[in-house]
Structure formats: structure tokens, C-alpha cells
């Protein structure tokens, strides 16, 4: 207890200067943060990065979390389909190569083109997109908070799912893109037709009724497929400052927040005690440091939230 007080609280025995706030204490905090990043990124992260917060998003985890949300509503789980995952991967690569962040590419390519080019012929299809997240649970939480993305996840018409998690540079920024494709293969009645004919009927179906960017379900007419895209405009617009559950942070981010919180509390207590006792101590000002550390904590927490469309 005495050691903790010596470390964190200003009093006569530490000359009114807690050791954590002295140069050696702050130096140890800095080295500890570097060490945490290095160890976590080298040994526990999926993606290799020397410093900083590495993303830890896995396709299998995203599928499991999506299925858990469906199970909660009593819906059947979705089976992973490697062709759908391949189509999702093509979509992610297309976004990187053409440098866009949207359901429909600037040249008008819809997500359904990637279904077709991967030879996945569907009666129902849907797409959810996400970027800049750090953990799988944060991605699924964000989708579930958005009514139109939630509708896609909980759509009882879907039977299969495909996922792609791909790193790259988008709009000049290193990012991780997540593409979630939903699908229901065309039923035997249609699959009895030769694959060429099926492909043609799908193309015809969509050119006659292009899937809109908004969450509009195209009315099925004959074999016309049903394709659904989320409508982000239905969600709350602007900066989303809803409190975030801390479990959406990576281990490194949690350790950073914990260490910075300890530093923040020590700085606030230090300022308060010095002010109360009217002590004019030589050294840097804890109030200024506290303001900056608080800002860093807020930034870490809110930067863990990426974007969805």
C-alpha cells in the first residue's frame, strides 16, 4: 500500500511528486506501451505489423458471430459457401483496384456481378460492407446496430454466407475491407436448366430490374432473383458517439486504455492534491498532461469503430 502511494499519490515522503509522474516513471510507461505493441503484433496478431494496433478480424469468427445473432432470433444458421467467399473476395479486390467504397462501383458494377462471375446463381442475395474495424465482434455489433444491415443478417430467406477480409490501400489509406455476401442457391427447378441458360436468365433478371442501392427488395417475377443492399441513409447519420462496449477493442487497445487511464487518474489526483494543499511544485503541469491523456483515451475507443455501408 505504501509503495502504491509512493508511486501514485503526492505526499511528503515522495517530495509531493509521485514516481509514476517523474521522468523514470513516464519513461517506463512509454517503453511498456512499445513492448505491448511489439509482443502482441509479433505473436498474437493475424496481420504482421511492427508497432500500433493490428487488426484481428477473422472470416470464421465473423460467420460464427453472424450465426449467433440469427440463432438468438430462432433463425437457421447460414452455411459457409466457398464460392460465395470467392465472390466476396473479388468484390473486395475490385474496391481496392478501382479505389471506391460503395455497393456499386463507379463504372456501375453491382455486387451481383461478382456472384455471377463466380458462378453462384441465386434466388436471394445480399451484401454488407465494413472497413477500418479492429475486431470481428466490433464489425458484427456495428452491423446489428444498423437497421438495414441487421435486416440482411436476420433475413430468413438466406441459406449461405461468404466472407472476405482483405487488407489494402483504399483512398490513400491502409485499411481492412470486410465483405459479407449472403445467398440462397437457385432451387432444383431452375438448376435443372443448363448452367449457361441459368446464367443467362440471371443476367436477364438483373438487367431488367437492376438492384437498387437502397434496401429495396426487387419483386420476384418468375425466376428473377431477389437482391438486397443495406440502406445506410436509414441509419443515424453523422458522427456516431454511442458508448462502445470495451470488448470491441483489441487486447493491445485494452492495455493502452488501461495504462493511460492509470496515468490519467494519477495526474488528476496529483493536480487536485497540489491545488488543495497550495503546493507550488517544480516540474511539468499535470493538468495539461491529463487533458492530453484523456483525449488519447477517447480517440482509442472511438477509432476502434470503423465504417459500414
Amino acid at each position: 500500500m505504501g509503495l502504491l502511494a509512493h508511486l501514485l499519490i503526492p505526499h511528503v515522503r515522495n517530495n509531493h511528486h509521485p514516481h509514476l509522474l517523474r521522468p523514470h516513471g513516464l519513461g517506463i510507461v512509454f517503453l511498456f506501451l512499445i513492448l505491448v505493441s511489439l509482443i502482441n503484433n509479433q505473436f498474437f496478431s493475424e496481420r504482421q505489423k511492427v508497432l500500433g494496433f493490428a487488426t484481428n478480424i477473422k472470416s470464421e469468427e465473423l460467420i460464427n458471430l453472424t450465426n449467433k445473432e440469427r440463432e438468438k432470433k430462432g433463425l437457421p444458421t447460414l452455411k459457409e459457401n466457398s464460392i460465395l467467399s470467392q465472390a466476396a473476395s473479388l468484390k473486395a479486390k475490385d474496391m481496392f483496384s478501382k479505389n471506391y467504397w460503395a455497393h456499386v462501383s463507379p463504372d456501375g458494377t453491382t455486387p451481383w456481378e461478382f456472384f455471377k462471375s463466380s458462378s453462384y446463381f441465386y434466388s436471394h442475395a445480399g451484401e454488407n460492407l465494413a472497413r477500418d474495424f479492429y475486431t470481428s465482434s466490433a464489425v458484427v455489433s456495428a452491423w446489428m446496430e444498423s437497421s438495414s444491415h441487421r435486416e440482411n443478417i436476420l433475413n430468413k430467406s438466406y441459406e449461405e454466407i461468404g466472407m472476405a477480409v482483405i487488407d489494402g490501400v483504399l483512398e490513400g489509406e491502409e485499411t481492412t475491407l470486410i465483405v459479407q455476401f449472403f445467398g440462397t442457391p437457385q432451387k432444383p427447378l431452375l438448376s435443372s436448366i443448363s448452367s449457361d441458360q441459368t446464367a443467362n436468365s440471371s443476367v436477364t433478371g438483373e438487367t431488367e430490374g437492376q438492384p437498387s442501392r437502397v434496401a429495396a427488395e426487387l419483386k420476384p417475377t418468375g425466376s428473377k432473383p431477389l437482391a438486397v443492399l443495406p440502406d445506410s441513409s436509414r441509419d443515424q447519420s453523422g458522427l456516431n458517439l454511442k458508448p462502445l462496449p470495451l470488448e470491441t477493442l483489441t487486447t493491445t487497445q485494452k492495455i493502452y486504455v488501461a495504462v493511460l487511464l492509470l496515468l490519467l487518474v494519477t495526474l488528476i489526483v496529483d493536480s487536485f492534491i497540489l491545488f488543495k494543499r497550495r503546493i507550488n511544485r517544480q516540474g511539468s503541469h499535470s493538468v495539461l498532461h491529463a487533458g492530453l491523456i484523456l483525449l488519447l483515451i477517447v480517440l482509442i475507443i472511438y477509432s476502434s469503430r470503423g465504417a459500414i455501408i
Partner: peptide, 8 residues
């Protein structure tokens, strides 16, 4: 900290 947040 800022490097960790903004340089992905």
C-alpha cells in the same frame, strides 16, 4: 498512441 490509432 496517435501512431497506433492513425497509421494502420
Amino acid at each position: 498512441t496517435l501512431y497506433s490509432i492513425f497509421i494502420r
